[in-house]
Simulated scan of single mutants.
Amino acid sequence: MNQMVLLQHFGRDTAGVDEAGRGPLAGPVIAAAVILAWPIPGLDDSKRLSAQRRLHLARQIRQEAVAWSIAWAPVREIERDNILRASLQAMARAIAALPRRPLRILVDGNQSPPGMVVETIVGGDGQVDAIAAAGILAKVARDGEMQDLDACYPGYGFARHMGYGTDLHLQALRRLGPCPLHRRGFGPVDRAGEGC
């Protein structure tokens, strides 16, 4: 990255919250909440970072944060409630799991987790360091989960595409049909399942 990203820092009483995995066709949605003691150089929207950089920053976040937590919503919850509600539930679980209670909670996006008083910030993962940190932890945790699940469901390439609707994944879906990790309410999965 050529340009230094300067994210706003709110301090030890503010938690940032973000999720990873709303768009994929398979796997859970994972959320994280982070309270940072001080700014960590190099934080940014996880989508703008390489996998190696995310791993490095995730280690640093876990070591230096005042508090952090990770929570998820499994595929069955996504199917039952829809992806938005499942994502918000995962965020609520991550906030509740923090070992320290924040005075202020900043959430990426424009929707609030149920029953919680938060501030929403559209594009917050590129504006607030604690939200960026949460997005990185969520993305690293979800990628790790999908890599582990690849061994349970060989042939789909989950370790390569992490469940996103790539050509490789869509070809595997057409060839093998959906597996238990797939979100059957999502159009490409539903269409692939019609022949099974």
Results as ranks from 00 to 15, higher is better:
86 A>T: 04
89 Q>D: 10
79 E>W: 04
36 L>K: 06
91 M>N: 04
2 N>L: 07
78 I>E: 08
27 G>K: 06
156 Y>T: 05
10 F>L: 14
94 A>M: 05
80 R>D: 11
15 A>G: 06
106 L>T: 01
177 G>K: 09
71 A>K: 06
125 D>Q: 05
14 T>Q: 02
193 G>Y: 06
143 D>H: 00
142 R>P: 02
55 L>G: 15
152 C>L: 11
91 M>Q: 14
115 G>Q: 01
165 G>R: 01
122 V>L: 12
99 P>A: 03
112 S>E: 00
76 R>M: 07
36 L>M: 15
51 A>D: 14
172 A>N: 13
97 A>V: 01
85 R>D: 11
76 R>E: 15
23 G>D: 08
188 P>S: 07
49 L>E: 13
66 V>G: 04
61 I>S: 09
129 D>I: 06
132 A>Y: 04
87 S>P: 09
27 G>H: 06
25 L>P: 13
173 L>Q: 02
112 S>D: 02
120 T>Y: 04
64 E>S: 14
173 L>G: 08
46 S>E: 09
17 V>A: 00
183 R>T: 13
164 Y>F: 13
110 N>S: 09
16 G>T: 00
129 D>K: 02
167 D>T: 14
174 R>I: 04
190 D>F: 11
140 V>H: 07
5 V>A: 10
76 R>D: 15
25 L>W: 14
74 P>Y: 06
173 L>R: 05
106 L>Q: 00
107 V>N: 01
60 Q>A: 13
71 A>R: 01
176 L>M: 08
29 V>R: 00
13 D>A: 09
89 Q>I: 15
29 V>K: 06
68 W>P: 07
151 A>D: 13
31 A>C: 04
104 R>C: 09
64 E>G: 06
44 D>I: 05
137 L>Q: 10
2 N>T: 09
112 S>F: 00
74 P>F: 09
176 L>Q: 14
3 Q>H: 05
49 L>I: 11
137 L>K: 07
119 E>A: 11
139 K>V: 01
119 E>R: 14
116 M>K: 14
90 A>V: 02
144 G>P: 06
192 A>P: 06
171 Q>C: 02
103 L>M: 07
40 I>C: 09
57 L>S: 12
114 P>D: 05
59 R>E: 15
50 S>N: 12
62 R>M: 15
89 Q>K: 11
77 E>V: 15
141 A>Y: 02
129 D>H: 02
184 R>V: 11
38 W>H: 15
